[in-house]
Amino acid sequence: MLTAPDGAIASPERFATVFDVHYEEIRRYIGRRLDPGVAEDLAAETFLIAFRRRTRFDAARGGVRAWLYGIATNLIGRHRRAELRRYRAMARTGPPPDDSGHDQLVADRLSAEVTAARLAEALAGLSRGERDVVLLIAYGELTYDEVAAALGVANGTVASRLSRARAKLRNALGVEV
């Protein structure tokens, strides 16, 4: 994880290091949240926005990684309707077909389809804030502090959104604690 003191990413040369270190991670995160075909473009847009705003980066508000996830999450928010349609479609149809043709993979796929459909439906039932927190933690592997910095909310807000989301997901998936 790269963190930078104030102004340390202001120069284009230093920003190139930020890009090299974090691009693939941000692209994967976006690809998990939206259609993978969009991930490359939105990841590039994330870094374009970050590059344009690099002189305003404030390390006191969080690290570079959380800052980039915040930009990416905001871009994803603009594509929210497509994200919700994708989760609802997955809930109806399941994940894309597997071309391997092995008997065990077919059985595994049937089980995965049921699980993926239920999970996608449950995620679609969360509020945007709850879904952002869950997916930043699950896909981005961000800490509570990083999620708070990425979304521009307090740590307590992250904890309460995650708690509500967990309860909703447990209820939707029929999981008892």
Score class of each variant (00 low, 15 high):
residue 61 R to L: 13
residue 62 G to Y: 09
residue 62 G to I: 13
residue 65 R to I: 07
residue 65 R to M: 08
residue 68 L to K: 04
residue 68 L to F: 10
residue 69 Y to E: 03
residue 71 I to Q: 12
residue 72 A to V: 08
residue 72 A to P: 07
residue 72 A to R: 04
residue 73 T to R: 07
residue 73 T to K: 03
residue 73 T to A: 15
residue 74 N to L: 10
residue 75 L to A: 13
residue 76 I to G: 06
residue 76 I to M: 09
residue 76 I to Y: 06
residue 78 R to C: 05
residue 79 H to S: 09
residue 79 H to N: 12
residue 80 R to K: 09
residue 80 R to W: 15
residue 81 R to L: 08
residue 82 A to T: 02
residue 82 A to Y: 10
residue 82 A to I: 00
residue 83 E to M: 14
residue 83 E to R: 11
residue 85 R to A: 11
residue 85 R to S: 00
residue 85 R to Y: 09
residue 86 R to H: 07
residue 86 R to N: 04
residue 86 R to Y: 01
residue 87 Y to H: 07
residue 88 R to E: 14
residue 89 A to L: 11
residue 90 M to R: 11
residue 90 M to A: 08
residue 91 A to F: 01
residue 92 R to H: 01
residue 92 R to M: 03
residue 93 T to D: 07
residue 93 T to R: 11
residue 94 G to Q: 02
residue 94 G to N: 03
residue 94 G to H: 02
residue 95 P to F: 07
residue 95 P to C: 08
residue 96 P to A: 15
residue 97 P to A: 15
residue 97 P to E: 12
residue 100 S to D: 15
residue 100 S to H: 07
residue 100 S to C: 15
residue 101 G to P: 00
residue 101 G to H: 08
residue 101 G to I: 10
residue 102 H to R: 13
residue 103 D to T: 08
residue 103 D to S: 10
residue 103 D to H: 14
residue 104 Q to N: 10
residue 104 Q to R: 15
residue 105 L to N: 10
residue 105 L to Q: 14
residue 106 V to I: 13
residue 106 V to N: 03
residue 106 V to F: 14
residue 108 D to Y: 14
residue 109 R to Q: 13
residue 111 S to M: 10
residue 111 S to N: 10
residue 112 A to Y: 09
residue 113 E to P: 00
residue 113 E to W: 02
residue 113 E to H: 02
residue 115 T to G: 00
residue 116 A to N: 05
residue 117 A to C: 05
residue 117 A to L: 00
residue 118 R to M: 08
residue 118 R to N: 05
residue 120 A to N: 02
residue 120 A to T: 11
residue 121 E to A: 15
residue 121 E to T: 04
residue 121 E to Q: 09
residue 122 A to N: 01
residue 123 L to K: 05
residue 123 L to N: 03
residue 124 A to I: 07
residue 124 A to G: 09
residue 124 A to Q: 02
residue 125 G to N: 06
residue 125 G to D: 04
residue 127 S to F: 09
residue 127 S to H: 06
residue 128 R to C: 06
residue 128 R to D: 15
residue 128 R to S: 11
residue 129 G to P: 04
residue 130 E to D: 12
residue 131 R to C: 08
residue 131 R to D: 00
residue 132 D to G: 02
residue 132 D to F: 14
residue 133 V to M: 03
residue 134 V to R: 02
residue 134 V to G: 05
residue 134 V to E: 00
residue 135 L to I: 11
residue 137 I to T: 06
residue 137 I to A: 15
residue 138 A to D: 05
residue 138 A to N: 06
residue 138 A to C: 05
residue 139 Y to V: 12
residue 140 G to T: 10
residue 141 E to R: 15
residue 141 E to C: 09
residue 141 E to K: 13
residue 145 D to F: 01
residue 145 D to M: 02
residue 146 E to R: 01
residue 147 V to E: 10
residue 147 V to Q: 11
residue 148 A to C: 08
residue 148 A to E: 02
residue 149 A to L: 06
residue 149 A to C: 05
residue 149 A to W: 03
residue 150 A to Q: 01
